[in-house]
Design a protein around this nucleic acid. Structure first.
Lengths: 323, 323
DNA sequence: CTGAAAGCGCTTACAG
DNA sequence: CTGAAAGCGCTTACAG
């Protein structure tokens, strides 16, 4: 290719990358030769010579949750145009699985790394730090100033929804959760904080199940809760999956929503507004987290300074007719 | 590393890859040295020297459809243990976007390729063929014998569901679709074939909308259909998203399901069995397609022969209470 | 069964 | 602004 353009390989390389100053005329000649020959630089050779790849692993707990899919799509939209290749790793909420994934990704000399939350094994944490690979954490915030993150306060969001239920006049407010990942537990903490402050906290009204979240499980937990506590007048489900399941189960259980029991969810997933009644929930900044997280990582990978190490994107209480 | 084990680099390389015969004692020594030093071969150097990468792009239309997520998870489960790295590309049902993605992936010298269906630009098709990169097509079947595929007959599945509705005694059977991707249109063809054979085909009962599929759109199209054709007694929705939306909208529209109108979907997505009434649908072999497709690709990448170039995994009519 | 040599296709660092 | 040399860390092909 360099020969076709009648320049040295280095000049061709520089012309193609737009690096340093190359005479405009030469750049043009190189570009035409490249086009004519369909030349595309070999990424392996490039990575080997420059000692840095273009790979950016992104680790998420699940793909079967629209939440993470939205984040990933946003990340991809930011990284691809800059020449980076996103690699999706699924941890299934298992820190050990995440640790193994990280090991296999570090073997690839990644350019950057995007992680979900802060909950991981000490080994994983240490490997990330030791690698020197730029890393941004998504979904949560932290007060620590030695890590980078883009997210929102899960605890505040949990508290906000509970506060809404209190203000609506509900008094026996239950919290139902499945999966029990760190962010779910942070929301539970917000729920407790709110009810304790109102003097209405009752640990018996927390129904926490370790099984995976789904519509079916939502309906089952809802039935179980009402059996044990017929006096419950509102239920805060840790996510919309469960809440939608409860909404679908309500007619079968002969429960009027919100007349007899109010139902609230979390995340504002697809379908929540279509439910009958439409589901009150918390809208979370999924695309913005992916976008801002990716942009922060881009800055770090380029060695540029970032304004703040931790960005809080907030959330939005979305009141509909189920409460 | 080779020095620590006191062998030559080539021997170390061979020992680690398990290639050719290396004395068991040396293998052991090399392995221990690698462990002790935390040595991991550089994939870029490996790719450059061996002239083949470990990258396998998988192109799907969307991530926001559980259908493709299930396929991707299955593919990942097969490829990762064999040392291949899946790269997810999202085409948004746009052949031009797919063509661009393919170009950027071919620049990486991929080891293999997994595509969704057969609908792409001639340029894309030609690039794939010219590249010589092993490629398996997912989701559909074909009679062509110069391509590899793992899927099922979308048309037969559409016909099967329509046949079921006819057997149930429904006579004014509508077909409602959104997105209008190739597979949706194949299902429509099956619907037509079945009704024509029964002498009950009425083109007026097809409602085809190009907008993206969602619960909301399902409800809207259902309402629109009933307004135009109050005598419809069954609706075959091209996917469960739409059907679920219709099911949720039915009470609002004052329509009894299946009493007044039967509703059927396609794909058996999460939630379809939780609906009230539970949704009749077609269960499609998503995980098996991902798994079998990945295994076929694995064979091709290794240069092994494959039994059949096109594998039909079938589908399963799943009758519940909505019909 | 093991190894010395050459080379994969780029980029870095040093000259000029 | 341009280039000759060296080298990134592996594997291939050839010997022995």
């Amino acid at each position: 290719m360099a020969r076709t353009a009648a320049v040295s390989p280095i000049t061709a390389s520089r012309a193609l990358r737009g690096e340093r100053a190359v005479a405009a005329e030469l750049v043009e000649r190189v570009r035409q030769a490249a086009d004519a020959l369909g030349y595309v630089p070999d990424p392996a050779a490039r990575a080997l010579a420059s000692q840095r790849s273009v790979l950016v692993p992104v680790l998420v707990p699940l793909l079967s949750n629209a939440l993470f899919v939205d984040v990933l799509e946003a990340v991809q939209r930011q990284l691809a145009p800059e020449g980076y290749q996103m690699l999706i790793g699924v941890t299934h909420y298992d820190p050990l699985e995440e640790e193994k994934l990280l090991a296999s990704y570090f073997a690839m000399r990644p350019a950057g790394l995007l992680l979900t939350g802060f909950d991981r094994t000490p080994e994983a944490r240490q490997r990330v730090a030791a690698s020197g690979v730029p890393c941004v954490h998504l979904m949560e915030t932290t007060r620590a100033d030695d890590v980078y993150c883009v997210g929102f306060s899960q605890q505040d969001a949990g508290e906000c929804m509970t506060q809404h239920l209190l203000e609506r006049g509900y008094r026996r407010i239950a919290f139902v959760a499945a999966q029990l990942d760190p962010r779910t537990l942070q929301r539970a903490e917000g729920y407790r904080r709110s009810l304790r402050a109102a003097g209405r906290y009752d640990a018996g009204l927390e129904l926490l199940s370790p099984e995976a979240s789904s519509l079916r499980v939502g309906g089952e937990l809802f039935a179980q809760l009402l059996r044990a506590h017929p006096d419950v007048d509102a239920v805060f489900f840790c996510n919309d999956d469960l809440a939608q399941g409860a909404l679908l189960a309500a007619p079968r259980l002969g429960v009027a929503v919100p007349g007899q029991v109010a139902i609230a969810g979390f995340n504002d997933l697809a379908g929540s507004e279509q439910m009958l009644p439409a589901l009150t929930t918390v809208r979370t900044p999924r695309s913005s987290m992916g976008e801002a997280g990716a942009r922060m990582l881009l800055s770090l990978m380029r060695g540029e300074p970032v304004a703040r190490n931790c960005v809080d994107l907030g959330f939005e209480l979305t009141v509909r007719s189920s409460t």
